[in-house]
Write a protein that binds this DNA or RNA. Structure first.
Lengths: 174, 174
DNA sequence: TATTGTTATACTCTATAACTATA
DNA sequence: TATAGTTATAGAGTATAACAATA
């Protein structure tokens, strides 16, 4: 990690021609939680795309597949709520997974809703994805110290839980 | 922080009617860096919006104002590169700040470019925003332990720097 | 009346290509 | 030829409102 005299972190954006490289002082930004959270999340997302690129799965799709396998029979609202996705936007998401033959909507007793399940094909498809995700996570963890990983996840969990405190999470309470 | 028997973190989405609350097992997601990074970033962004809502400034706009004040005279490309924003998308960003009278484009010696500066009004406007950001950061830090903050920022910096390693950052090298 | 899934829609971010004026 | 800024456009992701079917 490159740092300038002040000990401040410098995020380099390498350019095709590195000759006219100019050191821009990012000031307090690189010492702030909010800004670094955004930059780290972007880097993590990019890494996910590189690792999962060949199979054509987005982070959102992967999380949905995981949840459905782990909690078979859930309604769409339950899955979308758990993942922080509006149920209106979840429709297209599950549409894609169903058209790819990975998940299916099964009519439930309450006939307004569907029970979500993975197909057999979906389960087979998901298995090797776990290893891809392990590789992705390993690359993130490699950027941290050995014990830094657990501390980071715990810190992120604490911050992520803030949303529980501050605001409502229901879909259409405006 | 609520945890279930396994010690796994549970992110609650409170609903209007909490009666039919169902515990959805998020499984390995809440133990993963990538997913928790996204959730934490969303929570942080929401907190920023709540704090900065009254003044109508987005995180991106705030970061641009900060960079320009700290490095007066930079070209648009230099600022957008430093912040990881495509120069095409930076145009609208700086347009807004200029129309609000906070920043200005000043013709440079190289007449293809502009030197970016804050206006006097922009400097006055920015001053109290620092306190807002301190409050925002304090609320994030409050979710962490006292020494957790420094460790978190250092970990996020390490992850954010991954993008330096893996991919090119130029604008149109596709 | 309230809820589930759905559609339509709009708004923001982001990404790419192509243009202009300068160099 | 290459670069700085710009425009146009397309694709995600996200947000709200309203509807039909069902409870």
């Amino acid at each position: 990690m490159k740092r300038e005299a002040s000990g401040r972190a410098v995020l380099l954006r390498p350019r095709a021609d590195a000759a006219d490289e100019v050191q821009v002082d990012l000031g307090p930004l690189t010492d702030g939680i909010g800004y670094m959270l955004r930059r780290a999340q972007l880097a993590s997302f990019k890494n996910f795309q590189q690792v999962f690129g060949p199979v054509g799965i987005t982070p959102a799709q992967y999380s949905v597949l995981l949840i459905i396998e782990l909690n078979p029979g859930l309604r769409q609202t339950q899955v979308s709520d758990a993942l922080g996705i509006k149920r209106a936007n979840f429709v297209g998401l599950i549409d894609v997974l169903e058209k790819r033959g990975l998940a299916q909507r099964i009519p439930a007793v309450d006939r307004r809703s569907y029970a979500l399940h993975l197909t057999e094909q979906g389960r087979k498809f998901l298995k090797p994805l776990r290893e891809l995700n392990d590789a992705h996570e390993a690359q993130l963890a490699a950027a941290l110290g050995k014990d830094g990983r657990a501390a980071l996840v715990s810190a992120l969990t604490a911050i992520a839980s803030m949303e529980t405190v501050s605001g409502p999470a229901t879909d259409d309470d405006a």
